[in-house]
């Protein structure tokens, strides 16, 4: 399967998980963000162009299905997060599991505060996520992302070997 198709399926899979979580327990759906995790993991593995494209796609999916009255805020926020993560991953040595966890956690915080800032800039009222729930969200996203990175890394190694 080609990498763009894998990325598209990953985004759709994350949407299905997020949608399912919202029905099982909305509180759980607020604590973990599979769409963001997929964008950050792909940005870490493939660089800034993939990061921003997959980030924008994941953000628009979130906007369209779970967003407020003005769409595109999550799209823009996640595109910028994907770009920053991909840019950093391609130029800095973010190889170890520890650094990946830190990047996934930081990306969650960056996305949350970025979305809140963008919403305020466009005069859209959104609540500010308090520090503790945000930290919990960052931790859960980091753990989920670290678990997803393994299979993706194996696939990348196979691609490079070919």
């Amino acid at each position: 399967m080609s990498p763009p198709l894998v990325a598209a399926f990953a985004v759709l899979g994350a949407f299905v998980v997020q949608s399912g979580l919202s029905l099982v327990g909305p509180a759980a759906a607020r604590l973990v963000d599979p769409l963001l995790v997929v964008a950050v993991v792909i940005a870490l593995a493939r660089g800034e162009v993939w990061g921003m494209v997959v980030g924008a796609a994941a953000g628009w999916v979130l906007d369209a299905h779970f967003g407020g009255t003005v769409l595109g805020l999550a799209g823009l926020s996640r595109m910028l997060v994907g770009f920053v993560v991909g840019f950093a991953a391609a130029r800095l040595l973010l190889l170890g599991p520890g650094s990946r966890l830190a990047v996934l956690g930081a990306a969650t915080v960056l996305d949350a505060r970025g979305l809140e800032w963008l919403a305020a800039s466009f005069d859209v009222g959104v609540p500010t996520l308090p520090a503790l729930p945000l930290a919990g969200r960052a931790l859960l996203n980091a753990l989920l992302g670290a678990a997803l990175y393994g299979p993706l890394e194996a696939r990348l190694r196979a691609e490079r070997a070919r």
Binding site: L23, P26, A29, R30, L62, F66, G68, A74
Partner: peptide
């Protein structure tokens, strides 16, 4: 209802 709140920032359902 086919989906509920998916983010902490907006309270929506589909």
């Amino acid at each position: 209802v086919v989906s509920r709140d998916g983010t902490p920032w907006f309270s929506t359902l589909t």
